[in-house]
């Protein structure tokens, strides 16, 4: 039996636009992933705790508020603190090019900016989880 990939999609912080997160959740579903959606206004602690309880392979963070610089590293840190250092973190949203490297250095697998085809997101996760 091929192992199902489990991904948690979350929206940290205060912005209330979740269309992007939903589109990605739906696209990953259609690629055979099990996607846990946790909804809006999540704290890094809530996201990390949910990811650990759910035993996911990856966490996707959708951020449009511009506060990725503080929120993303905190999610990564919270995951590590809870034993989830192997869980991959990817980010989607409006992220200025100059911030992408910083986020990657903070432990983010990949950053997907508006216009990224969902197939590229799915492929990147699949490759990182299964190593193919």
């Amino acid at each position: 039996m091929t192992k199902k990939i489990r991904v948690l999609i979350a929206k940290p912080g205060l912005d209330g636009h979740d269309r992007g997160a939903k589109v990605v959740a739906r696209a990953l579903r259609d690629r055979g992933f099990e996607v846990i959606y946790t909804g809006l206004h999540q704290t890094p602690e809530q996201i990390a705790a949910a990811a650990i309880q759910e035993g996911v392979d990856a966490v996707g963070l959708s951020i449009l508020s511009g506060s990725h610089g503080t929120l993303v590293p905190r999610v990564v840190e919270q995951l590590r603190e809870r034993g989830g250092e192997k869980i991959l973190v990817f980010v989607g949203g409006i992220i200025p090019a100059e911030d992408i490297l910083t986020l990657k250095q903070a432990g983010v697998m990949e950053v997907f900016t508006p216009g990224s085809p969902t197939s590229r997101i799915a492929d990147a996760i699949k490759q990182a989880v299964e190593g193919v």
Binding site: K4, A25, R26, L28, R29, D30, R31, G32, F33, E34, V35, I36, Y37, T38, G39, Q42, E45, Q46, A49, A50, Q53, E54
Partner: peptide, 16 residues
């Protein structure tokens, strides 16, 4: 697809 969106948790996140 064999995939799923699991959304029940959205309503319970205050206990996460």
């Amino acid at each position: 697809s064999g995939g799923a969106v699991l959304g029940d948790r959205v309503r319970m996140q205050e206990h996460a």
